[in-house]
Amino acid sequence: MAKDSAVAGTASTWMQVVFGGLGLSVAIVGAVIAYFAWVQPHSSNDDNPPPGPAGTTAARTTGPPASQRVALASLTASTGGGNFRPDGSGLDMACASGQSIDRQRSVEYDLLGHYAALGADLTVSKARDGDTALQVAVFADDRGVGTYTLKKDGTTRRLDVPLAGVGRLRIQLTCQFPDGEVRFGDPLLTHA
């Protein structure tokens, strides 16, 4: 009887080791799969880096024909479309309320790789004062491709971002105070 008890104890210990090890292996494999499922859609595509060195802009001798350009306002936003307000040939975006759950405004478009670039003239149409900074950030497939810090000093900043092969475009406005607004003058997408 003592021998059977010892064999049962040894078998029990052996089964705990085997099944515990299998459980741990399954958990590790599951964690690795979950990690790559999350990281892969959020990582950049290193095979298609943006053209030119970072921070440089190519000299443009002539723009593409008007038939190859599309007004950003003519596209339907996939999310946040109400954050842009059409105004003549431009679009205006007001600052968020500044509450803890409302810190920034953003608009997203599904481009599906149909466009090569986005251009617009950025100006601050409303701000608390001349020193208040408003920031426009542009993301192409969740990669930052342009950040523009603006003040209400009358200057216009040119937004020019490459979009070749980009599936999703996000334009985001972050403000210090809720009473600001940025104007996107004549925002045009260039067909790829």
Rank of each mutant, 00 (worst) to 15 (best):
Y115F: 15
R158S: 13
V39P: 02
Y109S: 03
R128T: 12
T56P: 11
P187F: 12
M93C: 09
V124D: 05
Q135K: 09
F139L: 08
L189Q: 05
D131M: 04
S89N: 07
H42K: 13
T76M: 05
L112G: 14
L134C: 03
V39L: 14
K151L: 15
V39N: 10
G90H: 04
D121V: 08
A140E: 06
A31K: 01
L173Y: 07
Q68H: 12
N48C: 06
L169C: 13
C175Y: 07
Q135M: 06
L72T: 09
M1Y: 04
S67N: 15
P50G: 10
R60W: 08
K3H: 10
G88Q: 01
P50C: 05
A164R: 00
A54E: 06
M1H: 04
V17H: 07
D179S: 12
R60I: 15
T132S: 14
Q172Y: 10
G63I: 11
V136A: 02
S125K: 08
S74R: 11
Q40H: 01
H191A: 15
W38I: 11
F139N: 07
F177Y: 14
A140Y: 05
G146E: 03
G20Q: 02
Q68D: 15
G30K: 00
D4Q: 09
Q16N: 10
A6V: 09
H42P: 01
A96P: 11
R128Y: 13
K3D: 12
C175H: 08
G88S: 03
A117R: 11
T123K: 11
A8M: 01
G180L: 07
G9E: 13
